[in-house]
């Protein structure tokens, strides 16, 4: 009887088809005549298949787990995306609600007078001849202050007439960067002291009737193009101004079309919202983000 190891190796080479043709012929002859050898070959064949099968099962289980993981990740991703959308919608709705409330002062402010009493930082006047204003005049003063200048005098050096202003507006009926550049030039000689800033609101005949364009000191960064979507009319009675979410009431100086706001901090971004009081169906305001810097 041949050694066990030699026999196993022979069966192995037979099953793995590694035998030479002569060796195969001899082995097959031996196989035909030996039931014992046939059984050994069969068992070894099954064990080899068992190895293959066991390896396959491991791979199949891994693929199944991976498939489940991908499925979970997909659903997880879908859930996260949906949650994000829901949160986004809720945030937008909240912001929209806040915005609406901002434009409805009567509903939100019980005592307007109290609020008006608490607005010392807000001043209403126009800077004369590019000089800084002392922050003393009351925001509730509807009369033009003595140092205010009319809109047609907003020029550097020589006066700009109302007629010229209207002609410019006709040529450029909507607020654009062109306007911004003009006003930048207009205010180039101005400076800010006492941490105050002039905000000028000019009325003009734009394609949107009764709209206002909020213009700012040359040190204010603004994007006039963005205004188009956010222009509202301001009536000449009560105007609510929200600065950094704090609400104030002030009267619109229809003669000078100006507000003066004293800001406490320099190098700070301020968010202004102007809105009209009174008949809400007519109005509402101008919104602008301003970055206040001291001009050298």
């Amino acid at each position: 009887m041949r050694p066990v190891l030699v026999e196993i190796e022979q069966i192995e080479r037979y099953l793995l088809q590694e035998m030479s043709s002569d060796e195969l012929l001899l082995f097959e002859q031996e196989l035909k005549g030996s039931v014992d050898l046939q059984e050994k070959v069969e068992v070894q064949k099954i064990v080899l298949r068992g190895i293959d099968r066991k390896v396959f099962k491991v791979a199949a289980s891994a693929a199944f787990a991976k498939g489940l993981w991908i499925k979970k990740m997909w659903w997880g991703g879908a859930v996260v995306a949906t949650s994000f959308l829901i949160v986004l919608v809720v945030v937008l709705l909240i912001n929209k609600t806040k915005e609406t409330k901002t434009h409805q002062p009567q509903n939100n402010l019980k005592n307007e007078q109290q609020i008006q009493d608490s607005i010392p930082p807000l001043k209403l006047h126009l800077s004369p001849n590019n000089k800084p204003h002392p922050p003393h005049s009351s925001i509730r003063d509807s009369e033009p202050s003595s140092d205010s200048i009319p809109i047609n005098n907003w020029q550097e050096g020589k006066p700009k007439t109302e007629q010229n202003f209207q002609e410019e507006i006709k040529q450029n009926p909507r607020p654009t960067n062109t306007y911004k550049k003009k006003y930048d030039t207009l205010w180039s000689g101005q400076s800010i002291k006492d941490e105050s800033i002039n905000i000028v609101v000019a009325k003009f005949n734009a394609s949107i009737k009764n709209t206002m364009i909020l213009l700012a000191d040359g040190t204010i960064q603004s994007d006039l193009e963005g205004f188009n979507a956010k222009l509202w009319s301001i009536n000449d009675k009560k105007t609510k101004i929200t600065i950094n979410n704090q609400v104030y009431f002030m009267k619109w100086d229809s003669a000078n079309k100006t507000f003066k706001v004293k800001l406490k901090e320099q190098n700070t971004s301020y968010h202004f919202v102007f809105s009209a009081g009174g008949n809400a169906s007519v109005s509402s305001g101008v919104e602008l983000n301003l970055n206040i810097k001291e001009k050298k």
Partner: peptide
């Protein structure tokens, strides 16, 4: 039958199976 062999392979020890796997698979 191969399924039975698969069960048999589970009882020969991990190292033994890994050796057989390395050679035959």
């Amino acid at each position: 039958k191969a399924s039975v062999a698969e069960k048999a392979l589970a009882s020969i020890g991990e190292k033994c199976f890994e050796i057989l796997k390395a050679f035959y698979h």
